[in-house]
Computed example of a mutant assay.
Amino acid sequence: MTSTPNKLILGSAPDSWGVWFPEDEHQLPYRRFLDELVEAGYDWLELGPYGYLPTDPEQLADEVGSRGLRVSGGTVFGALHRPDQWDEMLATTRRVAELTAAAGAHHLVFIPPLFRAEKGGAFLEPPVLGDDSWTALTRAADALGRIISEEYDVRLCLHPHADSHIQTQPEIERFLEGTDPLYVSLCLDTGHVAYGGGDNLDLIRRYPERIGYVHIKQMEPDVLAAVVAEDLSFGEAVKRGVCVEPPAGVPEIGPVTEALAGLDAPLFVIVEQDLYPCAPDVPLPIAVRTRKFLGSCGLGAAGTRIG
C-alpha cells in the first residue's frame, strides 16, 4: 500500500479509552488518559465530551502541551432538529468552539442526539424525522456552521451516529444535500456508517468535497446482524462488542484509507473504538496495536495545522 505521510494525520480520542461522559465512575481520570495516549504513540487528540478534559484554556494547554500533544478538534452534542432548544444548543456550542479554537484546533465534531437512551435503550423519540424536522435540522446546521466559522475559525463537522436521525446512508445524503458546503462538512465515521448499513467508499467517491474529518473504527459483523435481528440499542451493541479492534471488523481499512488519501485536502483521521464501560487496563494495549496496524495502512501521526 502506498504510504501517505502528512496527508492523513492520525490521532485518537477519549472514546478509545472508554470515555463517553464528562464524569462517570467507570471512566479513567483524564491525566491517565493523556499519559497513556502518549505511551501508545499518538501525537494528536480530539477533546471528547466537554468537561472530561479541563475546560480552562490555560490548564488544557498545559496538560496537553507538557506531554507534547496537539489537539485536532473538539466534540459537542446537540439537537439541530429542535428549534425550541436553539439558544441552549448555541450557547453550548460556543463554549466548545471557543475552547477548541483556544487549543489551536479548527474542527468541531457535532454529534446529534440519540433517539434511544445510551443506558437502558429506551426510545426517547421516534426514530425517523418528518419533513418539517428535517428542514429545521438543515437550516440550523447552516446557521450554526456559519456562526462558529466566522466567530471562532472552527468548522462544523456533522458526525453520523448509530441510533440517531442521521445514521443510514440515505439520511447522511439528505443531510449533505440540504446543507451549505461552505459552512458544514461531514465527519466520516467509518464504523457508524457501517452500523447504519452505509457504504464508506461510495460516500467518499460521491461527496469528496464534504469529507472534512474522519473517525476510523470497525464494527463486528455478527453483532451488527444481532442489532437488526434483536432490535438492539447502540449501548447494548457496544456491551456486546460491536466496536472491534482492527482489522477484525468492517469496513476494511485499507481501501478506505486509500480513498481518503486520494482526496485533495489533508485530513485528521481519529481512532475511535467505543469501549464504554471497560476495565482500566483494557484500552492501552488496544491503542498500541491499533496505532501500529493503522501505520501499516499508511496512516502517520505527524502533521501541522489543517484549516
Rank of each mutant, 00 (worst) to 15 (best):
S12Q: 08
P14I: 06
P14A: 13
S16N: 09
G18P: 07
V19N: 06
W20Q: 04
F21P: 00
P22A: 04
E23Q: 09
Q27N: 05
Y30R: 11
R31G: 02
L34N: 01
L34R: 00
L34T: 00
E36V: 03
L37Y: 08
A40I: 07
L45E: 01
L45R: 01
E46R: 01
G48N: 06
Y50S: 00
Y50K: 02
L53T: 05
T55R: 15
D56A: 14
P57H: 10
E58T: 03
E58F: 12
Q59E: 13
L60W: 11
A61P: 00
A61L: 05
E63R: 06
V64H: 07
G65R: 03
S66K: 15
R67F: 12
R67Y: 12
G68W: 13
G68K: 11
L69T: 01
R70Y: 08
S72R: 01
T75L: 15
G78W: 10
L80K: 07
H81Q: 11
Q85K: 13
W86C: 03
E88I: 02
E88K: 15
L90P: 00
V96G: 05
A97H: 06
T100I: 08
T100F: 14
A102H: 09
A105I: 04
A105E: 10
V109G: 01
V109T: 01
F110Q: 06
F110C: 07
P113D: 13
R116H: 07
A117R: 05
K119I: 14
K119L: 15
G120I: 11
G121C: 10
G121M: 08
G121W: 06
